[in-house]
């Protein structure tokens, strides 16, 4: 016996009404018409911004306390970064054994937003923010120094709470 083609097999399964095409087409048209009346899901982006949840991994930032940055320039984030985007140069503070980042740079063209730096950080000093609008006009602009990385702790409360709750 010759093998059946797919269309032959489906043709056998179809009832008389289905073979008429038109009732089925009418069904499909009803569906699309109903779809037309539903509101659209589009967000008018530049006017209507997207507000991510605390779990969102946006641009990594440094937490700024009243006394200065939390970062102690241990360099763990720099070591763990798979994209080698972070460069830290430590400097001595006036206190014994304590250091601070003299230079802390993240190359945002290299950053892949994996969040490893945040996970590795022993001081909760570097966290992922909600900032997703990253536009640069040249390569130099894409390298963020401490001036652009430091964000007051008040603005990062939700992310820090999220980390305390879920960070393993």
């Amino acid at each position: 016996m010759a093998t059946q083609t797919v269309s032959e097999r489906t043709a056998k399964r179809m009832t008389f009404w289905e073979k008429l095409y038109l009732p089925e087409i009418a069904k499909g048209m009803t569906l699309t018409f109903k779809q037309m009346l539903k509101p659209s899901l589009t967000r008018q982006y530049p006017e209507e911004k997207f507000h991510p949840e605390a779990s969102y991994r946006g641009r990594p930032v440094l937490v700024q306390e009243e006394y200065g940055e939390r970062c102690v320039a241990c360099g763990l984030c720099s070591r763990v970064c798979p994209a080698i985007a972070i460069e830290v140069q430590a400097g001595e503070t006036s206190k014994e054994k304590e250091r601070y980042p003299e230079k802390f740079e993240i190359n945002m063209l290299r950053c892949i937003f994996c969040g490893y730096c945040e996970e590795a950080c022993p001081e909760e000093a570097i966290v992922m923010s909600r900032d997703y609008e990253l536009v640069f006009e040249n390569v130099d602009d894409a390298i963020f120094g401490k001036d652009r990385l430091l964000v007051p702790v008040a603005q990062l409360q939700e992310r820090l709470e999220y980390l305390r709750q879920y960070k393993g």
Binding site: Q35, M36, K38, P39, S40, L41, T42, Q44
Partner: peptide, 13 residues
């Protein structure tokens, strides 16, 4: 516009 409405989009605006 109609294609956009059917596909839950907005269309040219």
């Amino acid at each position: 516009k109609v294609s956009a409405w059917i596909q839950d989009r907005v269309g040219p605006n």
